[in-house]
C-alpha cells in the first residue's frame, strides 16, 4: 500500500513546490528585484559609509587637511598609498615643517579595508561613494589626491 501513498505524497510535495514558484510568477510584475543598472544611475544612491575610493576633500581655498604624517602609508597593508613630501618653511613660525608634494593613491591595489582612514589623525582622507571606477588604462588608476597648488589648511597639526 505504501506504493500508492508514495505516489500520492510525492505528487503532493511537487504541487506544493509549484505553488511557491507559481505565486511568484503571478506577482512577477511588482516582485521583480532586478536593478537595471545603467538606466537607474540617477536614482541609485550609495550608503554614506560606502567604500568607493579614497579621496582628499579640498575646501574653496584649495586647502586640504593632510599634514604628510604618513600614518596612512604605514597603515596600508598593500602599499596603495605613497606620499611624496618635502620640508618647507612655515611663514608664521619660521620653522621647518613637513608638507606633502604628492599624495598618490593606487586604486588598483586598494582592498578598501579602510585602515588608512582609521589611521588618519586629521581626517584628511575620506571615503567617496563613487562606484564607477573602471577605466581602460591601468595607469589611470593611480591618482594624485591633493589638487595642484593646494596647501594645508592653517592650524592643522598632527
Amino acid at each position: 500500500m505504501s506504493y500508492f501513498s508514495d505516489i500520492y505524497n510525492g505528487i503532493k510535495t511537487l504541487l506544493t513546490g509549484m505553488s511557491v514558484t507559481g505565486k511568484y510568477f503571478i506577482h512577477a510584475r511588482k516582485g521583480s528585484l532586478t536593478q537595471q543598472y545603467p538606466d537607474n544611475r540617477e536614482t541609485l544612491k550609495m550608503f554614506d559609509r560606502f567604500r568607493g575610493e579614497v579621496v582628499m576633500p579640498h575646501d574653496e581655498n584649495n586647502e586640504h587637511r593632510c599634514t604628510g604624517c604618513q600614518k596612512c602609508e604605514i597603515a596600508c597593508p598593500n602599499g596603495t598609498i605613497e606620499i611624496i613630501w618635502d620640508r618647507g618653511i612655515d611663514e608664521e613660525t619660521g620653522k621647518k615643517k613637513k608638507k606633502i608634494d604628492k599624495h598618490i593613491y593606487h586604486l588598483g591595489m586598494c582592498t578598501m579595508c579602510g585602515l588608512c582612514i582609521e589611521a588618519c589623525p586629521t581626517d584628511a582622507i575620506v571615503w567617496a561613494q563613487n562606484y564607477e571606477n573602471s577605466v581602460y588604462d591601468r595607469t589611470k588608476l593611480s591618482k594624485v589626491l591633493n589638487q595642484p597648488g593646494s596647501k594645508v589648511k592653517a592650524g592643522i597639526e598632527d
Partner: peptide, 19 residues
Amino acid sequence: EETCGARLTMNYNIPGGLM
C-alpha cells in the same frame, strides 16, 4: 553596506573593538 561600507569583505573589526 550601510554599517560597514562594504558588502562582502567588511573589515569591520579591529583589535580592541570595532572600526
